[in-house]
Design a protein around this nucleic acid. Structure first.
Lengths: 209, 209
DNA sequence: TCTCTTATATACTCACGGGTATATTGATTA
DNA sequence: TAATCAATATACCCGTGAGTATATAAGAGA
């Protein structure tokens, strides 16, 4: 029986229990991704992750299938954030360059988030064949989305007529890199880094006349 | 007794034996770095490396101390190549931008070589505390060298007055990235990639008037 | 020729960590 | 109230792979 305006109570309804479960699952992923990022996937045991949450390993297996699935969920979340960054800016106003700028900024910000970081730090080597294939496919989709944006810009003249594929690689490299070195507790805020990175990529090193 | 003009003989002199030994050590490193790059450090056992050379694991231990030392030697070789790239171009003619361009090009090429690749693919997580410290110190030296070059260019007006630190990070990211994706057997030659990358970084995405 | 060193192999030890079998407790439902 | 299910723990199994003890064969030097 649903309890529309129920007072807070120690007795949980079905939906509440499902929400609890989801919350715990989420907590496991957050703890895991943090440790994966800090120590590396192979150097992190599920016992470690469990201990950091004050629980035991079988509890993790109660919420997630196995260690690889934990990683895949983390990476997938990161990739979803990246896709979202690429797609939302697609329908925005402005010329191609303006739209690309906005996408790059968001992309860079995601890369300095726990789940985003995880994407760069996870090589295909860590995944099983199927996992790696999925991973590659999703990354490819993001790459294509980026290329389309660059092509738009070239078409409307707001971006120089560059090699699209190489441009996408260049951008990806520069924007992924903060995932490796940026320290959220350091002096540079993620926003500063993102803005600075994007400006440099768009203007280039050579002085403009 | 030295044999100055010795004919080829199955009996090896002391120096020849030392050279042999060095050659074998080198072969182990080459085989190891290839497998590390292909499958990842943790996923590669020394038994695998040994098997790929038709030898057995204790033979590797005869030439190198332990698995981490194998990795450190590989990374060190990569870092030496990168340092060399940065330093040789230092004394070249031309303005700051021209010298930087030449350094970036070499740097990118190293990153598409076995040992260079290994540098990007090896996170600090793989190394012991001491190993990681050494690793970071050497990377820092390269970064500083890069920054100095950028400062030279800004001083002589050949490079726009950018934030030096962020510029160095941007360049590093874009130039390291090929170490992750470039396939030496693919359609794009390392030279093409390097040239293209450097051009894009120097001119930027926005059209020049 | 006898010994010492170098290069190599076989066969082992041992810790770590992924994954599981099973017990327990408390709440849910019939 | 009995039966069931969800959530969690303890205690285990077992494969993998780093690293080693030990044997052997061949060449170098005395």
């Amino acid at each position: 029986m649903p309890r529309p305006n129920a007072a807070p109570s120690p007795f949980r309804s079905r939906e509440e229990r499902e929400r609890d479960r989801e919350e715990k699952r989420e907590a496991v992923l957050r703890a895991a991704v943090r440790m994966f990022n800090a120590r590396g996937f192979h150097a992190t045991s599920l016992d470690d992750v469990a201990a950091s949450l004050g629980i035991s390993k079988p509890t993790i297996y109660h919420y997630l299938g196995n260690k690889e699935q934990v990683l895949i969920e983390c990476v997938t979340r990161g990739l979803q954030l990246l896709s979202a960054a690429a797609d939302t800016a697609r329908a925005q106003p402005g010329d191609g360059l303006a739209r690309l700028r906005s996408v790059l900024r968001r992309y860079a910000l995601v890369m300095m988030d726990d789940f985003g970081r995880c994407v760069v730090r996870t090589g295909d080597e860590f995944l099983s064949a199927e996992g790696a294939a999925l991973f590659r496919a999703r990354k490819r989709a993001i790459d294509l989305s980026m290329r389309a944006l660059i092509e738009d810009g070239i078409a409307d003249g707001s971006i120089a007529p560059l090699d699209v594929r190489m441009t996408a690689f260049t951008l990806a490299g520069a924007l992924n890199w903060p995932g490796r070195w940026h320290d959220p507790d350091g002096p540079l805020s993620a926003e500063q880094v993102a803005d600075s990175l994007v400006d440099i990529l768009i203007s280039g090193l050579a002085p403009r006349a």
